[in-house]
Simulated assay, not measured.
Amino acid sequence: MLDSNRLRRLEQMPLWDFALAFYSAPNVEDACLTLQDTLGIDVCELLFHGWLSVHGLEALPGPLDKQRKEREVWQREVTQALRHLRRRLKPEAQESASIATLRKMIQQAELQAERENLQRWQIWATENPDDDARLTNCALNSHDVAKWLQDRLHFTELDKDCLCASGARDSISNAWQALATRLDRFESPR
């Protein structure tokens, strides 16, 4: 049975607030970007699972799969499209002030798209969870957090297609571990 105290604490810390605090912790941004750029991990979903885990909760696989598909469409059609455009304009922005301004606006739109995605994850998690079992209690030992995150995101193996080089494996392993360490030590901002 879902612990109502955990759910109440979850509702008291919006996912966006958690994401800002967690992402700004040392090594987290680099770890998230490594996993995003190397494995195609959706950082918003990763943050969502981290938010749940610090409250002792996790999403149930069946309902999660349906929500994940909806969030993947948003990421692909909105956030990734903006990210691609922002990255594409980077060289031109170094030579043109007007392109740099445009790129900054696109970066702000990308951030807003990520915020919207996180808000949709939060609504899904907190909206009528008793009627539509979406969450369950989760008890994690600190040494299990990295594997738990990988399992939630369906990346249980480090030897995926492009990860033949040991440097890539090490970088990815270090990223998972950095996130796990920060989640284990996370304290909500006051």
Rank of each mutant, 00 (worst) to 15 (best):
M1Q: 07
L2A: 10
N5E: 15
R8M: 11
R8G: 09
L10K: 00
Q12Y: 06
Q12H: 08
M13L: 15
M13G: 09
P14G: 10
W16C: 04
L20P: 06
L20W: 09
A21N: 08
P26S: 11
N27V: 08
V28T: 15
V28N: 04
D30N: 13
L35H: 06
Q36T: 03
D37A: 05
T38A: 04
C44Q: 14
C44P: 03
L46W: 00
H49T: 05
W51T: 07
V54Y: 05
L57D: 15
E58C: 12
A59D: 11
A59L: 10
G62H: 14
P63R: 12
L64K: 15
D65G: 10
K66C: 08
E72W: 00
W74Y: 05
E77N: 09
V78S: 07
V78I: 09
Q80V: 03
Q80G: 10
L82R: 14
R83N: 12
H84A: 10
H84Y: 10
L85N: 09
L85V: 15
R86K: 05
R86G: 01
R88V: 02
K90F: 03
P91V: 13
E92G: 11
A93C: 03
R103P: 00
M105H: 14
Q108C: 01
E110Q: 06
E110A: 01
Q112D: 14
E114F: 02
R115Y: 00
Q119C: 04
R120T: 08
I123P: 04
W124L: 00
D130F: 08
L135S: 07
L135Y: 10
T136D: 12
T136G: 12
N137Q: 02
C138Q: 13
L140V: 03
D144N: 02
A146E: 06
K147D: 00
K147V: 01
W148N: 07
L149G: 12
D151C: 01
L153F: 07
T156D: 06
E157R: 14
D159H: 04
D161Y: 06
C162F: 14
C164V: 12
A165H: 05
S166Y: 01
G167A: 03
R169D: 03
D170Q: 10
S171G: 00
S171T: 01
S173R: 05
S173I: 02
S173D: 02
S173M: 01
N174Y: 11
A175N: 11
A178L: 05
A178F: 02
A180M: 00
A180L: 00
L183Y: 09
L183M: 08
L183P: 09
R185Q: 15
